[in-house]
Design a protein around this nucleic acid. Sequence first.
DNA 1: TAGATTGTTAATCGATTAACAATC
DNA 2: TAGATTGTTAATCGATTAACAATC
Lengths: 215, 215
Amino acid sequence: MNRENRVSVTVIRRLPKYYRYLGELLKKGTNRISSQELSKMTGFTASQIRQDLNNFGGFGQQGYGYNVEELHAQLGKILGLNKVYKTVIAGAGNLGQAIANYKGFQDAGFKILALFDKNPKLIGLRIRDLPIMDVDEMEEFIKENEVDIGIITTPKENAQDIADIYIRAGVKGIWNFAPADLRVDDDIIVENVHLNESLFTLSYFLNNRQEYVRD
Amino acid sequence: MNRENRVSVTVIRRLPKYYRYLGELLKKGTNRISSQELSKMTGFTASQIRQDLNNFGGFGQQGYGYNVEELHAQLGKILGLNKVYKTVIAGAGNLGQAIANYKGFQDAGFKILALFDKNPKLIGLRIRDLPIMDVDEMEEFIKENEVDIGIITTPKENAQDIADIYIRAGVKGIWNFAPADLRVDDDIIVENVHLNESLFTLSYFLNNRQEYVRD
DNA sequence: TAGATTGTTAATCGATTAACAATC
DNA sequence: TAGATTGTTAATCGATTAACAATC
């Protein structure tokens, strides 16, 4: 695959939502689902759903729809959720601890190996069974354990330094919660969670409700 | 303003980023900035930046660019950051506490009044100076204090119930961290932070790096 | 004045929606 | 077979980029 036939980022960002609803259907024991029913659940149009899925293959069957279990499995594979990823967390404050404690990520194959911090009061403690270690040991630890993903939950002042360590140590992706844009090589994938931007967007819509209600 | 002249959601979601960079420039003491320089910082094209800003007015000056202080103030007003919002947090676990502890939100005018939980071990504790109260008292509290924004950091199983309470109590917006889509009336603004979807997107790009590097 | 840079229109590009033949 | 629903092409819509006259 090359740039010409790659799937657009807008499409990719809808896949996790399909995956989530299919997981719920699977749990309920539903066997089949049509694009129209999925449309009602997700809020995307049926046409868009069929277009999106057909970027990756013809998973459906005319006159029937999609097999829930199969489509769920296929989307999981497309998203890379059939693998296990090793991750570490830099910044063992509340947010880092929240992520470490959230079972959902472990279940999805994102295995957290350790948290790192520079606060001596935190170093040595444990979150569940996970150690909080000195950030000075992080680079070494990542190399030894071949960590795939580095998570950043530090204040924004330290985010770039942490990113630099991550990259030197060889992580392939960074999940960044600091309100800063990281400078990284092109081959490092950065996914930002900018809570500030999310909250400010909410604030905008609160102040311009009349224009945006009823969509 | 009506539907015809409302600004598209894609534009709105870029505004907080402009605002953030302008804040940094302001702190550095920079007086003026051109769309071209802003382009280098933000990664959006200069043309797009000028288009975006002109949805709200002609803030620039030919041959000069934009006055940093003025544009920052204007964007703040557009985003509604010149007001104070009263908020509460439902779910006083790590994530709720992380948000309560994050000074940035308070500074931006989002005042947290209290956290709520149903866990007796948490009720009565304090996060900074904020009480953790019984969720049974939440509806009453919100009505009395005229809370604007309800934050949801509970497990997904409780998210809809909390949303229902928020709506009954009269909040105008919900900031939802639970991996669920809430059913609410059209006049309630919901802003979702779906960490699952963000992580799964990262996972996709990790597995399809060769297609997406160098953009 | 000359140079720089906006505001804005027009052109292009990409994403969404509509439509329907194919087929289960 | 008849009905349902996909996969896919074509039409539409919206967002981004290019271009340049206006003007500071």
